[in-house]
Amino acid sequence: MATTGVMRPGHIQLRVLDLDESTTFYKDVLGLVETGRDAAGRVYFKAWDERDHNSVVLRQADRAGVDLIGFKVKDKATLEQLDKDLQAYGVATERVPAGELLETGERVRFTIPTGHVLELYADKTDVGNGQPYTNPDPWIPAAEHGIGPHRFDHCLLYGPNLEQTLELFTQVLGFHLVERVLMEDGKSLLAMFISCSHKAHDLAFVCHPEPGKLHHVSFLLGSWEQVLRAADIMSMNRVSIDIGPTRHGITRGTTIYAFDPSGNRFETFSGGYESYPDHQPITWTFDEVGPAIFYHDRKLNERFLSVVT
């Protein structure tokens, strides 16, 4: 599809309990590239293959979790139009001035029915992926430092009001529903996987009574082999692993889940399929939620539904 309107998840700001420990982890174990620090003490990273200045921002706090998720939109006119559309739909928005996040333009901020803070922005400085735009090589040494994912890909959020949230994303922000898991009543949404692009998911939600929780932030790898390499690097560094390597039924991605030093879950995954807005969504019934999430084990591990930050 032509990627226009809301294009992709662009940044996520995470709360960490020990900034130095977490900075070392994100840089040397996950293998992101540190791109800056601001006056508020936040540390900025990008994955090696990303072109924009930052995608992961760490903030020292007294509790773990997610502060906000930013989506990049096509241009400034799109940003203005989406702000109008959100307000017309009844969503209160506010403006965050350019530069509040390093190398990032003005943002439109709002809270979605699951309690999470979302932002839209049109500008973030292109710093490149370490290769020129003329005659580049395919990868750079940073691609092999730590786990070394290609990009921040999506995240899974836990909170209430999934139906209203789906309506907001599909009717105002141009997302399409790719897959969903139904509750025992066969109607209500237990989980949903939505896309604003050709990806199998740009954002996912699981219904949860407490608003604003983070289940995981996900990073893209190039192959199943790299998922196994990520698992080795996690074990070498005594990283707290949740589950994997395994495969999801939902999206068909191959994956391993682990926790950062503050307990924020992250995923490194590869594969899955491409989605288009005309594809009808895939539905998983409640009795098949085990293989939907973990295709080989065919059952959930207890932590997957219980542990969030």
């Binding site: 509790r63 979790g65 030093p261 930050t309």
Partner: peptide
């Protein structure tokens, strides 16, 4: 849970 002081379980 997370083994990192974040989730409280």
């Amino acid at each position: 849970g997370c083994r990192g002081g974040g989730c409280g379980v």
